[in-house]
């Protein structure tokens, strides 16, 4: 019998350190599958963030760089400018990209940097133990918003895709999710398109992936995917926010 579904070649055969039901693993697999399908494993350089995905370099089987918290798009810029024919991407969480790294991803987009950001939004800081993230929803309880995020005190969630869309340097911007089989298939398509946009030299690409954090949300994995669907998607609508002109890729 032929294997219809197995581990992508770009992912090493080691167990993930993630909590049960955490969808980082799904996002990793999708990135690995896309890299396999595009045949770029030998030509890709990935960037690990600081946060739960800090050990990403132990999972991907290609060259990896560990970046300081939030700085991956700047590091990736340095790599891409030296090696313009390589495929360069970052894998970052919401605290990394959308809080401390706000300057770096925005200006990478402004410059039309030919890199791809895979942005995992699970509305909470995972690794440090469940504090409020820049994408924590209004009213959402976290360790640092124990009574729910109060917009008077802590403001509102950052909408990364909506922010980037008007920028001329941003070539492909999409928001996907990994809470259901259907959403996962869509997310993979978006990731693939983002890499293709980079490889066609069209500019900056980013895919935001709504993801779950059952542990820090205090939910079971099954409750978490439901919570994502009912709470995150209304606030962070899925879809392609910016695409290159038809027929370009």
């Amino acid at each position: 019998m032929k294997k219809a579904f197995s581990r992508p070649q770009s992912l090493l055969d080691v167990p993930f350190h993630y909590c049960p039901g955490c969808t980082h693993g799904v996002a990793h697999r999708l990135v690995g599958e896309v890299i396999d399908e595009l045949g770029i494993q030998d030509n890709v350089i990935g960037h690990a963030p600081v946060g739960c995905a800090v050990f990403t370099m132990d999972y991907f089987d290609f060259d990896m760089i560990s970046a300081a918290h939030g700085r991956a798009p700047a590091v990736a810029t340095g790599v891409k400018r030296v090696l313009p024919d390589r495929v360069v991407f970052t894998y970052q969480g919401d605290g990394d990209l959308a809080a401390i790294g706000t300057g770096e991803f925005v200006h990478a987009a402004v410059r039309g940097e030919k890199i791809t950001c895979i942005f995992i939004n699970n509305a909470v800081y995972g690794m440090t133990g469940g504090q409020m993230a820049p994408t924590t929803l209004p009213g959402q309880k976290t360790k640092t918003t124990p009574f729910g995020r109060d917009s008077v005190i802590s403001g509102y969630p950052i909408k990364v895709c909506e922010m980037l869309t008007p920028l001329d340097g941003a070539a492909y911007i999409a928001r996907a999710a990994v809470h259901s089989p259907r959403a996962i298939i869509q997310a993979k398509k978006a990731i693939k398109k983002a890499f293709q946009v980079q490889m066609a030299g069209l500019g900056f690409s980013l895919v935001e992936i709504l993801s779950t954090c059952p542990t820090n949300w205090g939910l079971t994995p099954l409750e978490a995917v439901k919570w994502l669907e009912e709470n995150m998607i209304p606030y962070f609508p899925l879809g392609e926010y910016k695409v290159p002109a038809a027929g370009v890729i």
């Binding site: 019998m1 032929k2 294997k3 219809a4 579904f5 197995s6 581990r7 992912l11 167990p15 993930f16 993630y18 039901g21 955490c22 969808t23 980082h24 693993g25 799904v26 697999r29 259901s180 089989p181 996962i184 298939i185």
Partner: peptide
């Protein structure tokens, strides 16, 4: 159908089919 493998975050599921 492979849907279980599609959602598995830990790649703990391998699906085989007759060609």
């Amino acid at each position: 159908c492979g849907i279980c493998a599609l959602v598995c975050p830990d790649m703990a599921i391998v699906v085989e089919r007759e060609e």
